[in-house]
Amino acid sequence: MAEIVNREEMAQGTIILNEIKAPRISQKAKPGQFVILQADETGERIPLTMADTNPEKGTITIIYMVVGKSTARFKDLQIGDEYYALIGPLGKPTHVEKVGKVVCVGGGTGIAVLHPIARALKEAGNEVITILGSRSYDLLIMEEQMKTASNTLHICTDDGSHGHHGFVTDVLKDVLEKEDIDLVVAIGPIPMMKFCSLITKEKNVKTLVSLNPIMVDGTGMCGCCRVTIGNDTKFACVDGPEFDGHKVDFDELAKRLASYLDDEKKSYEAYEKAKAQ
């Protein structure tokens, strides 16, 4: 079980796609839900929102960026290898309905999470305007799939190597000026979600974001993933991972994500060193 049946390297090998055998999860999973994976018995439990599911084949797809030891160990796994643990589908699915015009904003591996949501929103009859951002064009993922999942697609790059030279927020502002937007879905790095939410709050446009706090069990048992939403503390694993972007305390989330920064760094360096030898 949890065997990798397909594997791709994207964005210059910094982002990895795994299609994994998971019949039960593939039958149940809906856009916006996540799984927890563990490479082996000594590994960490890592939550990843699913990028795709294939109930006929009985597989799910995850796309992750290599940022530390745990994801580096995931990267080592090849086709035919199995994850030691895979559980899901966890969290609440995205509420998909026809609202009219929707802007989907994606950055980094957030684009992978955004993809099934954009597709479902378009299938529900919405007009989907997508804005994708990356540092440079060669780091952008899933452009073709997002083109299919959207009515209009805008690309932004920090270095100007393709599309708009600048941030997704520039284009978002522009779109909100020109069009009547009913919903914004923003998924990507925390600063991106934070600034998108600030812009849409000014315009009073409902905004969904998908949060990625540190988790352990992913089933509500530990409270590690707690986030402040308005005046309340919520558990992203069971109450989320999607929340109203206007209410999320992004600064607290960013700080909590750095809880183990020193340990993670040491651990990754030791791993790289051992691998080099």
Partner: peptide
């Protein structure tokens, strides 16, 4: 969380185990 990290995930054996 404190006990799960320590017991199940063996955080007390970090970095031999990955969970801090």
């Amino acid at each position: 969380e404190y006990l799960t990290r320590t017991n199940l995930m063996k955080g007390y054996l970090f970095p031999e185990y990955d969970t801090p």
